Simulated assay, not measured.
Amino acid sequence: MDRKMAVNVENLIKTFNQQEVIKSCNMSVRRNSVYGFLGANGAGKTTVFKLLIGLLSPTAGRIEVLGMNSFKYREKLLRNIGSMIETPVFYEHLSCKVNLEIHLSYMGMKDGDINSVLKDVGLNVTGDKPVSQFSMGMRKRLGIARAIVHKPKILILDEPTNGLDPLGIRDMRSLFRSLADNNNMTILLSSHILSEVEHIADTIGVIADGTVVEEVDLNTIKNKYPDGLENYFFHVLRGK
């Protein structure tokens, strides 16, 4: 086990209905870094994320998160992983604060700083407003708040800025970078907004047809592709 790595994936395979959707997949994510996970629709990003947090069991291969098998030790890892995958579901008739209180109770924690987290995601002025009255962007902010309120060591976010306006995207960009730099958090995020990934990621992983085909330091990409991450991404997809 490499203690510098928060996530190690080796020869991962996941089969649905006798069809391999994840194929001989390998991934390495350094601790306290931001890993931008890129791929076309249907490439396997969400499935890999679900495997990492133990929502799905692998057909074959090995997944280690913080040095532990993610499926076998899912309950033990629960407190150390925050995630937002697909559309988040809340208690619609309750406020965002009460939703976070319930989440902390579920995690068996009493020391989450809910007010500070709500301020970080821009929901500190919503008061007792029920989530049912939240806009799409507000719901996305609440999903991020719920993912970080228990202070996880690893944060896994699937399209976290979808539905946010430009100001919200900028705010979340700053928050994610701060969590990695100042809170010793490892972040894996997928996004179709390549410019946002380019602003915050340390490493880029590209998945195509269920296999991670490249993992490259962002600075290396910038040196080789001065026109930006988009050019690199399309070059990889064309080549693979």
Rank of each mutant, 00 (worst) to 15 (best):
D2K: 05
A6Q: 10
V7F: 05
V9Q: 07
I13H: 09
K14R: 09
T15D: 11
F16N: 12
I22Q: 05
R30P: 07
N32C: 11
G36Y: 00
A40P: 02
G44S: 05
G44T: 08
G44H: 02
T47Q: 06
L51D: 04
P58N: 10
V65D: 04
K72A: 15
Y73P: 00
F90K: 00
E92A: 15
E92Q: 15
H93I: 07
S95Y: 02
S95A: 02
K97R: 15
I102D: 04
K110Y: 14
D111S: 14
L118V: 08
D120K: 15
V121N: 00
L123S: 00
F134S: 11
R139W: 01
K140C: 08
L142W: 03
G143W: 01
I144S: 02
H150L: 09
K151F: 04
L155E: 01
L157E: 03
P160G: 05
T161K: 03
D165M: 13
I169Y: 00
M172W: 08
R173Q: 14
L175V: 10
R177G: 09
R177T: 12
A180Q: 06
A180M: 06
N183G: 04
I187G: 00
L189Q: 04
L189E: 02
S190C: 09
S191L: 06
H192R: 04
I193Y: 07
E196N: 08
E196L: 05
H199L: 15
H199P: 02
A201G: 08
D202Q: 06
D202S: 08
T203G: 04
T203K: 09
G210I: 01
T211F: 02
D217C: 12
L218K: 12
K222A: 03
Y225E: 00
P226T: 11
N231V: 05
F234P: 00
V236K: 11
L237W: 03
